[in-house]
Design a protein around this nucleic acid. Sequence first.
DNA 1: ACAGAAATGTAGCCAAAGCTAATATTTCCT
DNA 2: AGGAAATATTAGCTTTGGCTACATTTCTGT
Lengths: 142, 142
Amino acid sequence: MPTSPGSRHRRIRSDHATELAEDYVEAIAEIISQQGVCRGTDLAERFAVSHVTVNRTIGRLERDGYVKTEPYAPVELTTKGQRLASESSARHEIVLQFLVALGVPQASAAIDSEGIEHHCSEDTLRCMRKFIEQQDGAQNKK
Amino acid sequence: MPTSPGSRHRRIRSDHATELAEDYVEAIAEIISQQGVCRGTDLAERFAVSHVTVNRTIGRLERDGYVKTEPYAPVELTTKGQRLASESSARHEIVLQFLVALGVPQASAAIDSEGIEHHCSEDTLRCMRKFIEQQDGAQNKK
DNA sequence: ACAGAAATGTAGCCAAAGCTAATATTTCCT
DNA sequence: AGGAAATATTAGCTTTGGCTACATTTCTGT
Ligand SMILES: [Mn+2]
Ligand SMILES: [Mn+2]
Ligand SMILES: [Mn+2]
Ligand SMILES: [Mn+2]
């Protein structure tokens, strides 16, 4: 056996522990770039949860240094939050483009990539990038 | 916009809600087929959690009709549990083989597939199967 | 047979993420 | 200015899924 039996599942649990933070900072960055500011309401709609849940989640993000908030003011990203947002967004984009290149319909690719992105090792991302490039090459030749 | 903004995340949450059940029944079926019976200890080791956590999880699985237990006896799958185990196992196998066919090293593919499997739509699985077949074809030609 | 080891069960703790209801603040419109 | 609408906060609840500590039961080797 290559690795200890339980190690796979430890990784999954760790992936899930950071998943919400990644999706939130990614969403916050996107909403700010699109609308100038990001309000709790925007996030509640985006994630289809109550605004109370957003509030509590934002509280954890602030505790962990990803966002800065003041009462009744829009959410802002810290430098740490911006970095995580960029990384998450880039990774998400790779997974989405990969699925599309593989032939998955856009709607399904959009949904599936939202979950898959959090479980991709560097090995897997590298292979996905390579596949995208190859497909692009084939496209151009046509 | 193709779908409502929050629908993606609803799907992710639903995926995660069934994830543990899928992994457990899959593991139980595998352990039974390998060792004859499946005990809590086997699952605790497999998932790298305490035996108490296994106990509570098994309790939920029983409540939901996937397993049958009696005190101090090994865990058994119901028909419903066996069905879910087969489906989960087949799906997991597709994802694992797909990653390997894509060029991901075995160790990373084993880890990543454990998380990715729960987020693949039928669309994505179909494309993965097709890719595996194409790769197999290319292998045979060589 | 029985002592000790291994497995299982119980009690009680915690954090994350979801919710509703009620309250408070800010913003916007007339 | 004043009231309505939007937004944010607080209180208090739930389920899931993790843990340690301790108690009980079963298995195993001599
Ligand atoms: Mn994302
Ligand atoms: Mn995501
Ligand atoms: Mn899994
Ligand atoms: Mn996941």
